[in-house]
């Protein structure tokens, strides 16, 4: 039957690899995407320090990166992945294309979160003599933190979806299992199980993220 020890072990390993990829790639994606998002929000037309040319350059780069289909990106960056990780397959290697796909997406999420901050509050800080840096740290990031947190949750869900796609080139994790068993070996049952686990993981991440966001929000009574 499908639930023998070996299959269980494989699935558990798949879950572990998937979570590893998602968490590390999302964190690395934020390391790049958070500064990018701040830059876009600050230098944009209604930002606190409009710089039209700079905005346009990063706006275009972000759009280009975002419009490359992930499957193509996976293959395109194989040389880079080899250079950084040493090989092009397995969960560690998948982190490279995942991060590159996540960063521009995260940048847009951060940009839109920061743009939601009430302009009056920013003006109040400006009237106190705050520098742009102080406004970013003390006002924008602080006031947008709920929206940013929800953004993290959404980003994780997206990265999880991408990570499953990496199974096509032997990326490891649950997607890899689903493709190997479901697609190459016609083992529909294992494929369905992995899909169910993937769905469950997204649900759990979403649930945790939303609960956390609701808990730290001070706007409600």
């Amino acid at each position: 039957m499908i639930f023998d020890e070996k299959v269980m072990e494989m699935l558990l390993e798949g879950i572990r690899d998937t979570l590893f990829m998602v968490l590390v790639s999302t964190a690395a994606g934020y390391a790049l995407g958070l500064p990018l998002g701040i830059l876009l929000a600050v230098s944009g037309k209604d930002g606190i320090h409009p710089r039209p040319v700079l905005y346009r350059i990063f706006d275009i780069i972000t759009n280009i990166l975002r419009s490359v289909p992930f499957l193509i990106l996976l293959i395109l960056v194989i040389p880079l992945t080899r250079a950084i990780i040493g090989r092009s397959y397995g969960p560690e290697a998948t982190i490279v294309p995942l991060t590159l796909a996540a960063a521009p997406f995260i940048g847009r999420m951060v940009e839109s979160s920061l743009k939601e901050v009430d302009h009056g509050v920013i003006e109040a800080a400006q009237s106190m003599g705050a520098t742009d840096g102080q406004i970013i740290v003390k006002v924008l990031l602080g006031e947008a933190r709920i929206s940013l947190l929800i953004g993290v949750t959404i980003s994780m869900g997206t990265v999880l979806g991408y990570s499953a796609m990496a199974g096509v080139i032997g990326g490891g994790g649950l997607g890899d299992i689903a493709i190997r068993y479901g697609y190459y070996r016609y083992d529909t049952q294992i494929m369905i199980i992995t899909v169910v686990i993937l769905v469950a993981l997204v649900q759990v991440l979403q649930f945790i993220g939303m609960r956390l966001a609701a808990r730290v929000d001070k706007r409600k009574k």
């Binding site: 009430d118 009056g120 509050v121 003006e123 109040a124 006002v139 602080g142 006031e143 933190r145 709920i146 929000d217 001070k218 706007r219």
Partner: peptide, 11 residues
């Protein structure tokens, strides 16, 4: 200001 412009996420 008319609308106070307080930081909603700060005490």
């Amino acid at each position: 200001f008319q609308h106070f412009n307080l930081l909603m996420q700060r005490s």
